[in-house]
Nucleic acid binder design. Structure first.
Lengths: 212, 212
DNA sequence: TAGATTGTTAATCGATTAACAATC
DNA sequence: TAGATTGTTAATCGATTAACAATC
Protein backbone atom coordinates (compact mmCIF):
# COMPACT_ATOMS: atom_id res chain seq x y z
CA UNK A 1 0.00 0.00 0.00
CA UNK A 2 1.53 3.31 -1.06
CA UNK A 3 0.76 5.94 1.53
CA UNK A 4 0.76 9.30 -0.15
CA UNK A 5 1.63 11.34 2.88
CA UNK A 6 1.75 10.81 6.60
CA UNK A 7 -1.34 12.25 8.25
CA UNK A 8 -0.60 13.85 11.60
CA UNK A 9 -2.12 12.46 14.79
CA UNK A 10 -3.64 15.89 15.48
CA UNK A 11 -5.82 15.43 12.41
CA UNK A 12 -6.69 11.80 13.19
CA UNK A 13 -7.81 12.69 16.68
CA UNK A 14 -10.27 15.21 15.32
CA UNK A 15 -11.93 12.76 12.95
CA UNK A 16 -14.06 10.93 15.54
CA UNK A 17 -15.47 14.25 16.65
CA UNK A 18 -16.41 15.21 13.09
CA UNK A 19 -17.92 11.77 12.73
CA UNK A 20 -20.01 12.21 15.84
CA UNK A 21 -21.32 15.64 14.83
CA UNK A 22 -22.17 14.49 11.34
CA UNK A 23 -23.99 11.50 12.80
CA UNK A 24 -26.05 13.83 14.95
CA UNK A 25 -26.86 16.06 11.99
CA UNK A 26 -27.88 12.99 10.03
CA UNK A 27 -30.20 11.91 12.85
CA UNK A 28 -31.74 15.37 12.78
CA UNK A 29 -32.44 15.09 9.08
CA UNK A 30 -29.87 17.66 7.98
CA UNK A 31 -28.76 16.83 4.45
CA UNK A 32 -26.12 19.47 3.69
CA UNK A 33 -23.71 21.59 5.68
CA UNK A 34 -20.98 24.09 4.87
CA UNK A 35 -17.62 24.14 6.60
CA UNK A 36 -18.60 27.49 8.11
CA UNK A 37 -21.83 26.17 9.64
CA UNK A 38 -20.08 23.11 11.00
CA UNK A 39 -17.25 25.24 12.36
CA UNK A 40 -19.71 27.36 14.33
CA UNK A 41 -21.37 24.31 15.87
CA UNK A 42 -18.07 22.66 16.76
CA UNK A 43 -16.19 25.79 17.76
CA UNK A 44 -13.30 25.23 15.44
CA UNK A 45 -12.27 27.17 12.34
CA UNK A 46 -13.80 26.42 8.96
CA UNK A 47 -10.28 26.45 7.59
CA UNK A 48 -9.27 23.62 9.85
CA UNK A 49 -12.23 21.50 8.82
CA UNK A 50 -11.47 21.97 5.14
CA UNK A 51 -7.77 21.30 5.63
CA UNK A 52 -8.45 18.20 7.69
CA UNK A 53 -10.85 16.74 5.17
CA UNK A 54 -8.65 17.53 2.21
CA UNK A 55 -5.97 15.31 3.66
CA UNK A 56 -8.17 12.46 2.51
CA UNK A 57 -9.77 13.86 -0.61
CA UNK A 58 -12.33 16.38 -1.80
CA UNK A 59 -15.62 15.43 -0.21
CA UNK A 60 -17.44 18.69 -0.85
CA UNK A 61 -18.76 20.66 -3.73
CA UNK A 62 -17.95 24.30 -4.40
CA UNK A 63 -20.84 26.67 -3.88
CA UNK A 64 -22.83 23.97 -2.07
CA UNK A 65 -20.95 22.52 0.86
CA UNK A 66 -20.86 18.93 2.05
CA UNK A 67 -23.49 16.24 1.81
CA UNK A 68 -23.89 15.13 5.42
CA UNK A 69 -24.66 11.50 4.75
CA UNK A 70 -21.83 11.10 2.27
CA UNK A 71 -19.26 12.86 4.43
CA UNK A 72 -20.30 10.87 7.50
CA UNK A 73 -19.87 7.66 5.61
CA UNK A 74 -16.52 8.66 4.16
CA UNK A 75 -15.08 9.62 7.55
CA UNK A 76 -16.33 6.30 8.84
CA UNK A 77 -14.41 4.59 6.06
CA UNK A 78 -11.26 6.56 6.85
CA UNK A 79 -11.49 5.51 10.50
CA UNK A 80 -11.90 1.92 9.40
CA UNK A 81 -15.39 1.57 10.82
CA UNK A 82 -16.64 -0.33 7.78
CA UNK A 83 -14.48 -3.21 8.97
CA UNK A 84 -15.33 -5.10 12.11
CA UNK A 85 -12.69 -5.45 14.80
CA UNK A 86 -12.46 -8.30 17.25
CA UNK A 87 -11.37 -7.51 20.77
CA UNK A 88 -10.38 -9.31 23.93
CA UNK A 89 -10.17 -7.92 27.44
CA UNK A 90 -7.20 -8.88 29.58
CA UNK A 91 -7.99 -8.25 33.22
CA UNK A 92 -11.62 -8.51 34.22
CA UNK A 93 -11.56 -6.31 37.31
CA UNK A 94 -13.78 -3.31 37.80
CA UNK A 95 -12.72 -1.47 34.70
CA UNK A 96 -12.51 -4.56 32.53
CA UNK A 97 -16.03 -5.55 33.51
CA UNK A 98 -17.31 -2.05 32.86
CA UNK A 99 -15.84 -2.07 29.37
CA UNK A 100 -17.13 -5.59 28.76
CA UNK A 101 -20.62 -4.34 29.51
CA UNK A 102 -20.34 -1.43 27.10
CA UNK A 103 -22.68 -2.19 24.24
CA UNK A 104 -21.95 0.92 22.22
CA UNK A 105 -18.61 -0.35 20.92
CA UNK A 106 -20.42 -3.17 19.16
CA UNK A 107 -22.51 -0.67 17.21
CA UNK A 108 -19.34 0.60 15.61
CA UNK A 109 -18.16 -2.88 14.75
CA UNK A 110 -15.93 -3.52 17.75
CA UNK A 111 -16.87 -7.01 18.85
CA UNK A 112 -15.80 -8.53 22.10
CA UNK A 113 -14.83 -12.15 21.66
CA UNK A 114 -12.79 -13.05 24.72
CA UNK A 115 -12.22 -12.27 28.40
CA UNK A 116 -9.18 -13.31 30.40
CA UNK A 117 -8.12 -13.11 34.01
CA UNK A 118 -5.77 -14.80 36.45
CA UNK A 119 -8.26 -14.73 39.32
CA UNK A 120 -9.92 -18.18 39.76
CA UNK A 121 -12.98 -16.48 41.20
CA UNK A 122 -13.58 -14.66 37.94
CA UNK A 123 -12.69 -17.53 35.61
CA UNK A 124 -15.87 -19.29 34.50
CA UNK A 125 -18.03 -16.22 35.04
CA UNK A 126 -19.84 -14.87 31.99
CA UNK A 127 -20.42 -11.31 30.84
CA UNK A 128 -22.87 -10.76 28.02
CA UNK A 129 -22.52 -14.40 27.05
CA UNK A 130 -18.73 -14.40 27.01
CA UNK A 131 -16.96 -16.65 29.46
CA UNK A 132 -13.95 -15.45 31.40
CA UNK A 133 -11.04 -17.78 30.61
CA UNK A 134 -7.89 -18.37 32.56
CA UNK A 135 -5.04 -16.29 31.26
CA UNK A 136 -3.16 -19.53 30.51
CA UNK A 137 -5.59 -20.12 27.69
CA UNK A 138 -4.89 -16.78 26.07
CA UNK A 139 -2.02 -17.79 23.82
CA UNK A 140 -4.03 -20.59 22.27
CA UNK A 141 -7.09 -18.38 21.93
CA UNK A 142 -5.24 -15.53 20.24
CA UNK A 143 -3.51 -17.86 17.83
CA UNK A 144 -6.76 -19.55 16.92
CA UNK A 145 -8.97 -16.51 16.59
CA UNK A 146 -8.04 -13.37 14.76
CA UNK A 147 -7.72 -10.79 17.53
CA UNK A 148 -7.37 -7.22 16.34
CA UNK A 149 -7.37 -5.36 19.63
CA UNK A 150 -6.50 -6.34 23.19
CA UNK A 151 -7.86 -4.16 25.96
CA UNK A 152 -5.35 -4.11 28.80
CA UNK A 153 -7.13 -3.54 32.10
CA UNK A 154 -4.90 -5.60 34.31
CA UNK A 155 -2.64 -4.58 37.18
CA UNK A 156 0.36 -2.73 35.86
CA UNK A 157 2.96 -5.22 37.09
CA UNK A 158 2.17 -7.72 34.33
CA UNK A 159 1.27 -5.34 31.52
CA UNK A 160 4.65 -5.06 29.88
CA UNK A 161 5.13 -8.81 29.54
CA UNK A 162 1.55 -9.36 28.41
CA UNK A 163 1.83 -6.64 25.77
CA UNK A 164 5.00 -8.19 24.39
CA UNK A 165 3.36 -11.59 24.19
CA UNK A 166 0.21 -10.31 22.54
CA UNK A 167 2.31 -8.45 19.97
CA UNK A 168 4.27 -11.63 19.30
CA UNK A 169 1.05 -13.61 18.85
CA UNK A 170 -0.18 -11.18 16.21
CA UNK A 171 -2.45 -8.74 18.00
CA UNK A 172 -2.12 -5.43 16.19
CA UNK A 173 -3.72 -2.96 18.57
CA UNK A 174 -3.28 -2.53 22.31
CA UNK A 175 -5.69 -0.31 24.20
CA UNK A 176 -3.76 0.25 27.37
CA UNK A 177 -5.42 1.46 30.56
CA UNK A 178 -2.39 0.99 32.80
CA UNK A 179 -0.15 3.83 33.90
CA UNK A 180 2.74 2.27 32.03
CA UNK A 181 4.44 3.18 28.77
CA UNK A 182 4.57 0.29 26.35
CA UNK A 183 7.34 0.13 23.79
CA UNK A 184 6.28 -2.49 21.27
CA UNK A 185 7.55 -3.54 17.85
CA UNK A 186 6.68 -1.58 14.73
CA UNK A 187 3.36 -2.59 13.31
CA UNK A 188 1.73 -2.87 16.71
CA UNK A 189 -0.27 0.19 17.70
CA UNK A 190 -0.68 1.33 21.29
CA UNK A 191 -3.39 3.71 22.40
CA UNK A 192 -3.06 4.78 26.02
CA UNK A 193 -5.87 5.85 28.30
CA UNK A 194 -4.09 7.25 31.32
CA UNK A 195 -6.98 8.09 33.62
CA UNK A 196 -4.76 9.32 36.41
CA UNK A 197 -2.94 11.66 34.02
CA UNK A 198 -6.22 13.00 32.78
CA UNK A 199 -7.38 13.64 36.33
CA UNK A 200 -4.12 15.37 37.25
CA UNK A 201 -4.35 17.80 34.36
CA UNK A 202 -7.87 18.61 35.52
CA UNK A 203 -6.52 19.25 39.00
CA UNK A 204 -3.85 21.54 37.56
CA UNK A 205 -6.39 23.58 35.68
CA UNK A 206 -8.71 23.88 38.67
CA UNK A 207 -5.92 25.12 40.85
CA UNK A 208 -4.52 27.42 38.18
CA UNK A 209 -7.84 29.07 37.51
CA UNK A 210 -8.61 29.73 41.13
CA UNK A 211 -10.51 32.96 41.53
CA UNK A 212 -10.94 33.50 37.82
CA UNK B 1 -3.07 35.92 41.27
CA UNK B 2 -0.86 37.30 38.51
CA UNK B 3 -0.13 34.59 36.01
CA UNK B 4 3.19 35.31 34.37
CA UNK B 5 2.55 33.50 31.15
CA UNK B 6 0.03 31.03 29.85
CA UNK B 7 1.45 27.53 29.87
CA UNK B 8 0.35 25.47 26.89
CA UNK B 9 -1.76 22.36 27.36
CA UNK B 10 0.89 20.36 25.51
CA UNK B 11 3.27 21.05 28.39
CA UNK B 12 0.67 20.38 31.08
CA UNK B 13 -0.20 17.02 29.59
CA UNK B 14 3.42 15.93 29.80
CA UNK B 15 3.79 16.76 33.48
CA UNK B 16 1.98 13.70 34.86
CA UNK B 17 4.28 11.51 32.85
CA UNK B 18 7.38 13.21 34.24
CA UNK B 19 5.84 12.88 37.67
CA UNK B 20 5.31 9.17 37.21
CA UNK B 21 8.85 8.51 35.96
CA UNK B 22 10.40 10.53 38.76
CA UNK B 23 8.27 8.63 41.27
CA UNK B 24 9.60 5.37 39.86
CA UNK B 25 13.18 6.60 40.04
CA UNK B 26 12.57 7.66 43.60
CA UNK B 27 11.24 4.20 44.46
CA UNK B 28 14.38 2.74 42.93
CA UNK B 29 16.57 4.88 45.10
CA UNK B 30 17.88 7.12 42.32
CA UNK B 31 18.80 10.48 43.79
CA UNK B 32 19.93 12.50 40.77
CA UNK B 33 19.22 12.50 37.07
CA UNK B 34 20.22 14.65 34.11
CA UNK B 35 17.83 15.76 31.42
CA UNK B 36 19.72 13.57 28.98
CA UNK B 37 19.37 10.43 31.07
CA UNK B 38 15.69 11.10 31.65
CA UNK B 39 15.16 11.82 27.98
CA UNK B 40 16.61 8.45 27.03
CA UNK B 41 14.34 6.63 29.45
CA UNK B 42 11.24 8.49 28.38
CA UNK B 43 12.04 8.67 24.65
CA UNK B 44 11.69 12.41 24.41
CA UNK B 45 14.36 15.05 23.79
CA UNK B 46 16.41 16.46 26.64
CA UNK B 47 15.67 19.88 25.23
CA UNK B 48 11.97 19.36 25.67
CA UNK B 49 12.36 18.30 29.27
CA UNK B 50 14.44 21.37 30.09
CA UNK B 51 12.08 23.69 28.25
CA UNK B 52 9.04 22.19 29.93
CA UNK B 53 10.50 22.47 33.41
CA UNK B 54 11.76 25.99 32.87
CA UNK B 55 8.21 27.13 32.31
CA UNK B 56 7.84 26.78 36.05
CA UNK B 57 11.28 27.68 37.30
CA UNK B 58 14.82 26.40 37.51
CA UNK B 59 14.70 23.10 39.35
CA UNK B 60 18.14 21.86 38.36
CA UNK B 61 21.73 22.70 38.95
CA UNK B 62 24.30 23.27 36.22
CA UNK B 63 26.89 20.58 35.99
CA UNK B 64 24.87 18.28 38.22
CA UNK B 65 21.38 17.69 36.91
CA UNK B 66 18.18 17.40 38.87
CA UNK B 67 17.57 16.09 42.36
CA UNK B 68 14.94 13.42 41.81
CA UNK B 69 13.12 13.83 45.10
CA UNK B 70 13.00 17.60 44.84
CA UNK B 71 11.88 17.63 41.22
CA UNK B 72 9.20 15.02 41.88
CA UNK B 73 7.84 17.06 44.71
CA UNK B 74 7.89 20.30 42.73
CA UNK B 75 6.02 18.79 39.79
CA UNK B 76 3.50 17.44 42.28
CA UNK B 77 3.04 20.96 43.59
CA UNK B 78 2.60 22.34 40.09
CA UNK B 79 -0.08 19.76 39.38
CA UNK B 80 -1.81 20.72 42.61
CA UNK B 81 -1.31 17.32 44.22
CA UNK B 82 -0.37 18.83 47.58
CA UNK B 83 -4.01 19.88 47.88
CA UNK B 84 -6.72 17.30 48.35
CA UNK B 85 -9.63 17.30 45.95
CA UNK B 86 -13.12 16.11 46.78
CA UNK B 87 -15.03 14.28 44.09
CA UNK B 88 -18.53 12.98 43.44
CA UNK B 89 -19.62 10.49 40.82
CA UNK B 90 -22.79 11.19 38.91
CA UNK B 91 -24.09 7.99 37.36
CA UNK B 92 -23.23 4.78 39.14
CA UNK B 93 -23.47 2.38 36.21
CA UNK B 94 -20.67 0.08 35.16
CA UNK B 95 -18.09 2.75 34.59
CA UNK B 96 -19.13 4.84 37.59
CA UNK B 97 -18.81 1.80 39.85
CA UNK B 98 -15.44 0.94 38.39
CA UNK B 99 -14.13 4.42 39.08
CA UNK B 100 -15.67 4.39 42.56
CA UNK B 101 -13.69 1.27 43.31
CA UNK B 102 -10.42 2.78 42.15
CA UNK B 103 -8.32 3.25 45.23
CA UNK B 104 -5.33 4.78 43.50
CA UNK B 105 -6.94 8.19 43.07
CA UNK B 106 -7.12 8.52 46.82
CA UNK B 107 -3.37 8.12 47.10
CA UNK B 108 -2.96 11.29 45.07
CA UNK B 109 -5.43 13.19 47.25
CA UNK B 110 -8.54 12.71 45.14
CA UNK B 111 -11.19 11.74 47.67
CA UNK B 112 -14.57 10.39 46.73
CA UNK B 113 -17.28 11.86 48.94
CA UNK B 114 -20.53 11.24 47.09
CA UNK B 115 -22.29 8.95 44.63
CA UNK B 116 -25.50 9.79 42.79
CA UNK B 117 -27.87 7.98 40.49
CA UNK B 118 -31.47 8.11 39.31
CA UNK B 119 -31.94 4.36 39.42
CA UNK B 120 -33.86 3.33 42.60
CA UNK B 121 -32.14 -0.04 42.50
CA UNK B 122 -28.76 1.59 42.99
CA UNK B 123 -29.85 4.23 45.49
CA UNK B 124 -29.05 3.00 48.99
CA UNK B 125 -26.27 0.73 47.85
CA UNK B 126 -22.80 1.43 49.22
CA UNK B 127 -19.42 1.37 47.53
CA UNK B 128 -16.36 1.57 49.75
CA UNK B 129 -18.51 2.96 52.52
CA UNK B 130 -20.14 5.65 50.41
CA UNK B 131 -23.87 5.45 49.95
CA UNK B 132 -25.45 6.05 46.57
CA UNK B 133 -27.90 8.92 46.90
CA UNK B 134 -30.83 9.82 44.71
CA UNK B 135 -29.89 12.46 42.20
CA UNK B 136 -32.55 14.73 43.72
CA UNK B 137 -30.30 15.08 46.75
CA UNK B 138 -27.36 16.27 44.68
CA UNK B 139 -28.05 20.00 44.74
CA UNK B 140 -28.26 20.06 48.52
CA UNK B 141 -25.18 17.88 48.84
CA UNK B 142 -23.05 19.98 46.52
CA UNK B 143 -24.07 23.19 48.21
CA UNK B 144 -23.31 21.77 51.65
CA UNK B 145 -20.02 20.07 50.87
CA UNK B 146 -17.20 21.60 48.91
CA UNK B 147 -17.09 19.53 45.76
CA UNK B 148 -14.09 20.15 43.53
CA UNK B 149 -14.65 17.60 40.81
CA UNK B 150 -17.72 15.84 39.46
CA UNK B 151 -17.17 12.65 37.52
CA UNK B 152 -19.84 12.40 34.84
CA UNK B 153 -20.52 8.76 34.02
CA UNK B 154 -24.20 9.04 33.27
CA UNK B 155 -26.12 8.46 30.02
CA UNK B 156 -25.39 11.25 27.59
CA UNK B 157 -28.96 12.52 27.36
CA UNK B 158 -28.80 14.24 30.73
CA UNK B 159 -25.15 15.27 30.79
CA UNK B 160 -25.53 18.76 29.37
CA UNK B 161 -28.14 19.82 31.90
CA UNK B 162 -26.32 18.19 34.80
CA UNK B 163 -23.07 19.88 33.87
CA UNK B 164 -24.75 23.26 33.76
CA UNK B 165 -26.29 22.70 37.17
CA UNK B 166 -23.06 21.50 38.76
CA UNK B 167 -21.25 24.55 37.38
CA UNK B 168 -23.96 26.78 38.80
CA UNK B 169 -23.67 25.11 42.19
CA UNK B 170 -19.94 25.79 42.31
CA UNK B 171 -18.24 22.62 41.10
CA UNK B 172 -15.05 23.70 39.36
CA UNK B 173 -13.99 20.59 37.52
CA UNK B 174 -15.99 18.21 35.36
CA UNK B 175 -14.46 14.92 34.35
CA UNK B 176 -16.68 13.96 31.48
CA UNK B 177 -16.92 10.39 30.19
CA UNK B 178 -19.86 10.99 27.85
CA UNK B 179 -19.46 11.42 24.11
CA UNK B 180 -20.77 14.95 24.37
CA UNK B 181 -19.03 18.32 24.17
CA UNK B 182 -19.75 20.47 27.18
CA UNK B 183 -19.63 24.23 26.83
CA UNK B 184 -19.58 25.60 30.36
CA UNK B 185 -18.93 29.04 31.87
CA UNK B 186 -15.41 30.37 32.32
CA UNK B 187 -13.84 29.20 35.52
CA UNK B 188 -15.25 25.69 35.17
CA UNK B 189 -12.81 23.20 33.72
CA UNK B 190 -13.84 20.24 31.60
CA UNK B 191 -11.64 17.25 30.97
CA UNK B 192 -13.08 14.81 28.48
CA UNK B 193 -12.37 11.10 28.33
CA UNK B 194 -13.88 10.04 25.05
CA UNK B 195 -13.32 6.30 25.08
CA UNK B 196 -15.03 5.72 21.77
CA UNK B 197 -12.84 8.36 20.11
CA UNK B 198 -9.76 6.76 21.57
CA UNK B 199 -10.81 3.37 20.24
CA UNK B 200 -11.56 4.78 16.79
CA UNK B 201 -8.13 6.33 16.46
CA UNK B 202 -6.66 2.96 17.36
CA UNK B 203 -8.79 1.37 14.65
CA UNK B 204 -7.53 3.95 12.15
CA UNK B 205 -3.93 3.22 12.96
CA UNK B 206 -4.39 -0.53 12.78
CA UNK B 207 -5.99 -0.28 9.37
CA UNK B 208 -3.48 2.27 8.12
CA UNK B 209 -0.49 0.21 9.12
CA UNK B 210 -1.75 -2.96 7.51
CA UNK B 211 1.12 -4.95 6.12
CA UNK B 212 3.77 -2.73 7.61
C1' DT C 1 -24.84 34.58 -14.85
C1' DA C 2 -24.12 35.79 -9.86
C1' DG C 3 -23.45 33.95 -5.42
C1' DA C 4 -21.58 30.70 -2.57
C1' DT C 5 -18.29 27.69 -0.89
C1' DT C 6 -14.82 24.50 -1.70
C1' DG C 7 -9.88 23.09 -2.43
C1' DT C 8 -5.43 24.81 -2.01
C1' DT C 9 -1.66 27.97 -1.56
C1' DA C 10 0.47 31.40 1.33
C1' DA C 11 1.09 33.60 5.89
C1' DT C 12 1.12 33.18 10.64
C1' DC C 13 1.54 31.22 14.79
C1' DG C 14 3.18 28.04 18.20
C1' DA C 15 5.80 24.14 19.61
C1' DT C 16 9.95 21.49 19.29
C1' DT C 17 14.76 21.04 18.69
C1' DA C 18 19.43 22.75 18.48
C1' DA C 19 23.04 25.47 20.19
C1' DC C 20 25.64 27.67 23.54
C1' DA C 21 26.73 30.90 27.24
C1' DA C 22 26.24 30.71 32.18
C1' DT C 23 27.54 28.38 36.15
C1' DC C 24 27.83 24.76 39.43
C1' DT D 1 40.35 24.55 37.35
C1' DA D 2 38.09 21.32 34.01
C1' DG D 3 34.02 18.89 33.02
C1' DA D 4 29.29 18.61 33.00
C1' DT D 5 24.82 20.11 32.54
C1' DT D 6 21.54 23.52 33.15
C1' DG D 7 18.79 27.65 31.64
C1' DT D 8 17.80 30.24 27.74
C1' DT D 9 18.12 32.14 23.18
C1' DA D 10 17.94 31.14 18.34
C1' DA D 11 16.63 28.09 14.47
C1' DT D 12 13.63 24.80 12.70
C1' DC D 13 9.73 22.43 12.09
C1' DG D 14 4.85 21.61 11.93
C1' DA D 15 0.17 22.96 12.59
C1' DT D 16 -3.30 26.42 12.24
C1' DT D 17 -5.39 30.26 10.09
C1' DA D 18 -6.13 33.43 6.32
C1' DA D 19 -6.78 34.38 1.64
C1' DC D 20 -8.29 33.56 -2.81
C1' DA D 21 -8.61 31.32 -7.29
C1' DA D 22 -11.34 27.51 -9.01
C1' DT D 23 -15.80 25.99 -9.84
C1' DC D 24 -20.32 24.34 -8.84
Amino acid sequence: MTEERKISMAVIRRLPRYYRYLGELLDNGVTKISSRELSEKMKVTASQIRQDLNNFGGFGQQGYGYNVEYLHKEIGKILGLENTHSMIIVGVGNLGQALANYTSFEKRGFNLIGLFDVNPRLVGMSIRGIEVLDIDKMEEFVKEHKVDIAILTMPKTKVKETAENLAKWGVRGLWNFSPVDLFVPDGVQVENVHLSHSLMTLAYRINECEGE
